[in-house]
Design a protein around this nucleic acid. Sequence first.
DNA 1: CGAGCACTTGATCGCTTTCAATAGCTGTGG
DNA 2: CCACAGCTATTGAAAGCGATCAAGTGCTCG
Lengths: 247, 247
Amino acid sequence: MTLPIQTANENCEDCPIRHRAVCARCEPDELHELDAIKYYRSFEAGQTIIWSGDMMNFVGSVVSGVATLTQTMEDGRTQMVGLLLPSDFVGRPGRDGAAYNVVATTDVVMCCFRKKPFEELMARTPHIAVRLLEMTLDELDAAREWMLVLGRKTAREKIASLLAIIARRDATLSTDGRPGQMVFDLPLTREAMADYLGLTLETVSRQMSALKKDGVILLEGKRHVTIPDMRRLMDEAGDDSDGGFLV
Amino acid sequence: MTLPIQTANENCEDCPIRHRAVCARCEPDELHELDAIKYYRSFEAGQTIIWSGDMMNFVGSVVSGVATLTQTMEDGRTQMVGLLLPSDFVGRPGRDGAAYNVVATTDVVMCCFRKKPFEELMARTPHIAVRLLEMTLDELDAAREWMLVLGRKTAREKIASLLAIIARRDATLSTDGRPGQMVFDLPLTREAMADYLGLTLETVSRQMSALKKDGVILLEGKRHVTIPDMRRLMDEAGDDSDGGFLV
DNA sequence: CGAGCACTTGATCGCTTTCAATAGCTGTGG
DNA sequence: CCACAGCTATTGAAAGCGATCAAGTGCTCG
C-alpha cells in the first residue's frame, strides 16, 4: 500500500467544492484563516484513509472521488454507514478517536484542516458552525432514510433504492432527448453495495440481473447503468413517485 | 383524541433538562431570550405530536416522557428512526415541513420554541448552534450504530442490542449488591420494538421468550426487565464487551 | 497462458415472516 | 358478579426470502 501523496495547495477561490463544503458560508477573511490551516492529501482507490479507533489530528472535506464509512463487528460482518461524495465532511470536532473506517473506493483528494485550530476557528465563527450543522442535519436525514431501507425493504427494493440515490446524486441527463432517462457509472463494487444494503454480494448480483431482465435498468459491462424510466425505478424502490426528496 | 394541554411556564433554572438540552450552554441573558419564546405542551400516551408533512411552526425539547420518530411506506410498513428521551430535540431549523411522525409512547411534556424567533436567535448566538451541532452529531452516531443493527445483526442480537441501549440509558443499578445488575421498565410495546428493529412483533416476542428461557434477562409481567449480567447481554448483542460506548 | 479478481448463476438450507389460534389483562355494561 | 370486547402478548405450523455453499464466466494483468 502506497503512502498518501502531498500535493501543492490550491486557491480556495478555484475550489470545485467551494460553494457546498463546510466553508460554503465563509467570508473572505474566514476563508483566509481556513487556508492557513489546510493541506491536501491524495489517496488511491482501495486505500484506507482512517482506521476506526485511530487518533484523528485532522478533519476535512472530500474534494474529489468517492469514499465509504464502514463499521465492522468482531466476526467480520460489516455495514456501510455513509457514502462520502465530493464536499462531504469527514471527522468530528470535539472527538479525538475515529468511530468508523474510511476507505477510498476511487482515487480521492481530501482537503484537511488541522483539528485543534479548526475547532478554535469554529468556536469564533458562526458561519462554519452553522454550515456544519446544516450538513450534519442532512446526513442525519440520509441516515434515517437509510434505516427504512435496511429495516423494511426487500432485496429488490433495496437495490432499486440505492440505484435511485446514486442516480439522483451523480447522474447526467442523457442527450438522446428522452426526459427522465439517466446514465451513470456505479462507484461501488457488488460487495460494497451489499455492505451498504445489508445483503450478501450474491443477492445483490441476482437482483441486479433481475432488474436488468425486467427492463428497469440497462447494463453495459458491470458498472455502466442506464435508467430508462426514473419513475419506474422509484416504484420498484417502494418510494412515493413524487420525486422523492424530503419536503 | 384529546387536545394538547397548555401548562403554565416553568422557570428555566429549575428545568430538569437544563444542563443537557439545546439550552445547555446558554448564558443567563441568552436563556432569558429563549424564555421569551418558549411555551409548554403536554401530550397523552398514544397521541401523535407531529404528522409527517405537516407545517412546523415550532421546534423544541422533550422535557419528560418518551416519544418515537417513525417513517411509513404507502403499504403500511413502518420503521422507527429515532427514540426521543428527555432533553432530545425535535424539529429542524431551516425546514418548514416535518419529515417524520412523532408519537408519544408515554405521557410527554415538551418545551417548544416558536420556530422563526428561534432561528433568528440561533444565528446570533453561537452557544445554541454549537450545542445543537453537538447533539445532532450524537444523534448521527446513534443512527449509524443502528444501521449496523438493522443491516447485519440477527433477531436475537437485535433484541439484545435494544435492551442494552435502554438499560444504559435509563436503568438504575439495583440495590441488592450485585454489581452489573440492572433493572428497568420497557417504555415500548412489542410492536414498537419490532418497528425499531425491523422485525415482526411475533419475532420480538419469540426472542424475548428465548432470552428469558436462557437466563439472559428476567421478566416480571411484560415490561419489567432485570439484566442479571450486563456483560452477558453485551455478548448476546454481538458488541465488544468493553462497555460499548463510542470512543 | 495462467493467476487473480469481480461477478454471475445454481442448489440447498435455515431464519424470519406469515397465518392462525390462544392466553392474560383491563375496562364496561347488563 | 360475570360476560364480553378490545388490546397486548405468546406460541405453533407452514411458507418464503435471502444466506450459504459451490461452480463457473469473463476480464485484466503479469
